[in-house]
Structure formats: C-alpha cells, structure tokens
Design a protein around this nucleic acid. Sequence first.
DNA 1: CGTCCACAGGAATGACGGGCGG
DNA 2: CCGCCCGTCATTCCTGTGGACG
Length: 403
Amino acid sequence: MMPPIKVGDSLDIILSNALSGKTLFKDRSALRSDYIPNNLPYRNDQITSIAQILSPILQNSKPSNLLLYGKTGSGKTAVAKYVLEKFQQATIKHDKQISLAYSNARLAGSEYRVLVDLGQSLNLKIPFTGLPLSEVLQRIFNHISQFNLKTIFVLDEIDFLGKHSYDDILYSLTRSNEHLGSGLLALIGISNDLNFKTFLDPRVLSSLDEEEVLFPPYTVEQLRDILSERVSLAFNKDTVRTSISNLCAALAGSEHGDARRAIDLLRVAGEVAEREAATTVEDRHVRIASQKIDQDRIFNAVKTLPLHEKVVLASVSLLPSISTTGQVFDKYQNLARGISLDPLTQRRVSALLSELDVQGLINANIINHGRHGRTKRITCLVPKDILDEIFSQNSQELHLLHS
DNA sequence: CGTCCACAGGAATGACGGGCGG
DNA sequence: CCGCCCGTCATTCCTGTGGACG
C-alpha cells in the first residue's frame, strides 16, 4: 500500500544492510505490544497496591476481588501481567502453587468463550459450544475444588461483556467462594470505561469492586521517559534521536497519554525507516507511521467484518456523505440482491449500523427532523480506496461462491 | 398544542449447529 | 442414534420519542 520505492532496489538494500549488520533494530521484541518490561515507570503505586491486595493468596486465603481502571495504554494489562508473573515466581520458589488465568472479553467475543479461556488456563477441557453457561461454571468450580487450586483470573476489557452477563457470569465469579469447597478464585477485572460501574448490578458491583486501582493517563513527559527507555532496548545506538522519540510521545500523548500507541508509533516508524534503508529514524518516518497505523487499523477492522456488515458499510460509502438509515437500507437491499444474497431486515441493519458506529467505521448520530421523523445521521469514516481494495477481493470470493 | 413521521431499540421467538446423556 | 438443551444470529412485533407541521 505504502512505499513509493522500487521493490527490487529496496530489497537489495535491505539484504545488504542485514548482512553487514547495519540495522536499526537491536531487539524488535521490546516494542511488541505483549512485551512486558522489567520495570514499569510511574506505576509503582499501582504495582504495590495490587500486590498487597493479592498477597493473602500466599497464605491460602481469598484476596479481595479487584478492579483496574484506566484508559487504553495506561499500563493496566502490563501491570497486571507483571505482578502475576512476580507472584508466580515467588510461589515456585517457596514450593507453593497458584494458577493464573487470563482472558480478554473483547477478543473472546462472548461470555461463553471467556469461560472457555478460563477453563483452558486451568487445564480443563470445555467444548466450544453446546453447554449451558451454568454447566460450564459448575465444571470450573468443581475443577478448582477438586484440585484445591488457588486461582487468579484476570478478565481484561471486562466492559465488553454483554450487558446481560454482568448479572449471571460476574455474579457467580465474584461470589465463587459460595460454590467452592476448597481452592479459591480471585477475580481481577480490567476496564477501559470509567462509566462501566454505573451499568453494573449493585450486588455484582459490591463484590467485584471490593478494591479498585486507578491508572491515570501518562503525561507527555512520562511518555518521553518510557519511550527513551524502550529506544535504548530496541534500537541500536544513535539511530533514534531524542527528538524523534519525543515526537512519538507528543503525537500519542495529545489524546490521553496512550503508551501503547506511542510505542507502536516508534516501532512502525522504525520499520518504515528500515524499508527505506535509512540509517536513522527521521520525522517523516514517524508521520508516515502515524498514518499507516490508522489505515491498518481500519483495514483490518473492515476485512474481518461479517459479510452483511461489509455490504451495509459499502451501502453507506456509496451514498452521499450524509445519509439516513432508510437510505442505507434501500441501498443495502439493492446491493445484496445484486450478489444474490438474502437481505436482512431493517431492524437488523439498524443494529449493524450501531455496531459499525461502535467500531468507529461510520459516524452515526440520532437526529430529529421533527415532523419528518427521527433517524440516524450517518457518515462513512472509511476512505474509498480501502473499501475498493477489500471489495475487489471480496467480489472475487463471491463469484467463486456462486459460480 | 396536539399530531405524526421515521425511525430507535427492547422483548419474544425461531432456525441452526453443536454437545450431552442415554 | 435420538431427543433434549444450549448459545448465536436473525426475524417479528412492539412501544418509545423529539420536534416541525398543521
């Protein structure tokens, strides 16, 4: 998509640079999103309070449930994983054992699959569909009891669980003691959404929110320190000037101190520079990286959309820049029939539009035209060329399906 | 000032693919 | 193998709603 360089030329340069050891990166993995550094700057308070809250588990008693709050890229997941790793090391040293489980509600996609994740972390095999949720819960509790497991379950992006499940799943998990003969289960919830608590059933809230730890966004100055540390880990000497990493910090920090975005920016900028066979990372690499990250995010989001949702998105993009649900639905029906696909109902399309809105692929505001009804004011946020690229691939698949 | 548009979005229900226990 | 129950996605039916029009 991006580089305006002849492929053959840059390939030669990359190969010769790699062979002569002239590379920008020293250890690329230090910039990966799952990398957990040895020290997490500006998060000591959070680390110590989490450790304190969890420490009863080392005396075989149940720690309080715990809720971690903070916006994306404020270090919640990294801190949680870091503390748990330390606990594991400590328990191994003293010949005890705790079980750690981790699940990301957004990636898992449903409450059921969250429980499957939990079960798998405990070496309990659970079929990926077919069982009632209560049965799955029961099996997990039985398993924990049977082997007397001391379990810490981290539930990341907890606010992505469906609204119904707050009652069922979370209630059972937070009250796990009542179901357990022996063994124990401590729940650590991680939420990006500060309003999340207001949607919770008060009974769930009181047991989930026994303790909470807040993660304030990083300031730009803090981001600079974090980045400069990563730069020295990941890049060779004198390839990234301080002004460059400061630029990354400033770009990412302008919103709300998102460390993950800052680090991504650094990594992609490095990759762009490497592809250009540059010997240092420059301003323009960072700016290209910034665009590329946005585009990749959108591209992947669109590509993994279910078929009907793609068609709905295509309908939005084909209409004038501001359209309504009714117009989109008409267009959608035409398109769907054009590829011999049974159109969904307007109700469902309305729901799909809401999903696209949540994903940030369209902008949809409810607006009242008084006498002339009430509708969503819809604009497409996906650039045309991205859509064209995906739909040209997709129409080929469709032709294969229908031929 | 009430009406009534063009939808929003909740609730109930059904089709489907799957696991379970017998 | 069968009948049963489950979660998921979609449909059907429904009530709700802010404000321009008459």
